[in-house]
Design a protein around this nucleic acid. Sequence first.
DNA 1: ATTTATGCAAAACTTTTGCATGGGA
DNA 2: TCCCATGCAAAAGTTTTGCATAAAT
Lengths: 148, 148
Amino acid sequence: MSTENPHIQSLKRAGYRLTQARLTVLQVLEEERGHITSADVLAKVERVNPAIGRASVFRALELFTQLGIIRPTYISSSVTPTYVLMHGGHHHHVVCTECKRFFEFDDCDLEALTANLQASLDVQIKGHLLEFYGLCADCHVADGRGPA
Amino acid sequence: MSTENPHIQSLKRAGYRLTQARLTVLQVLEEERGHITSADVLAKVERVNPAIGRASVFRALELFTQLGIIRPTYISSSVTPTYVLMHGGHHHHVVCTECKRFFEFDDCDLEALTANLQASLDVQIKGHLLEFYGLCADCHVADGRGPA
DNA sequence: ATTTATGCAAAACTTTTGCATGGGA
DNA sequence: TCCCATGCAAAAGTTTTGCATAAAT
């Protein structure tokens, strides 16, 4: 992870220090291709550098969220949040509500809507979250749902 | 909350019993116009009917999520999930990341994208969640962010 | 009548906080 | 050197589970 890394730039630009804890959390997030839970981040950070404390991991996740480097989302019915690294501001999912698997896509074509909302509500929009829910190919074959 | 309530219909149709706990949680969710945290649901349910236990509230939230009646999401940098009732499949927000206020809108124009995804991924899409994040008029006036 | 769903209370986790100390800038 | 950020460990929350009982159908 070089110093030219855009997320590291975000940290520096905002005046935060480039500490071992923050850099390691960022490294773990970048090694993860999709979503990752806080528990997984904790485990992987510990594996990379056991000297880093849990609290610092949570503090980094919170800071990164504030800075827009990651976005916490829900992809399952569970209560454990997952984090996604924001690359270029676009990262979306189609989540199967049955098996919880998800598919990613980047193209969302929301520029017009964004411009519209900014004008009508007088807000500065910095990002968005778009998720579709439904049944994946495997699950929409036979789906009789009911009480266990 | 009448028996014709579509969410109650969903429960019945799926073969689940219409219990006090479930109906009360649903009532609380319907009284809430926007997002609500589990803690708030717990508190409001307790206010309406103190005889209902916490566990049942969580069980209801999980069941409703499975049935697509509500959707857990993240709207702040915190780690507490919030739940939104899904009305008619369209209900969106612009959330101010600073003051957490949010604005609603219904028009999202995602039909083309939906059709596209269904075809390319072979999924049956049943709904979607779209949220924009940014700064509201009050908050984008003076915002110098940085280390405390 | 049959079961499903419940309430309770304890257990299991997860996340946050306070504070003395270390490490970036 | 300065003071931001850390690690530690305990506290504070939150969510889940097991089980006997209540209450929907």
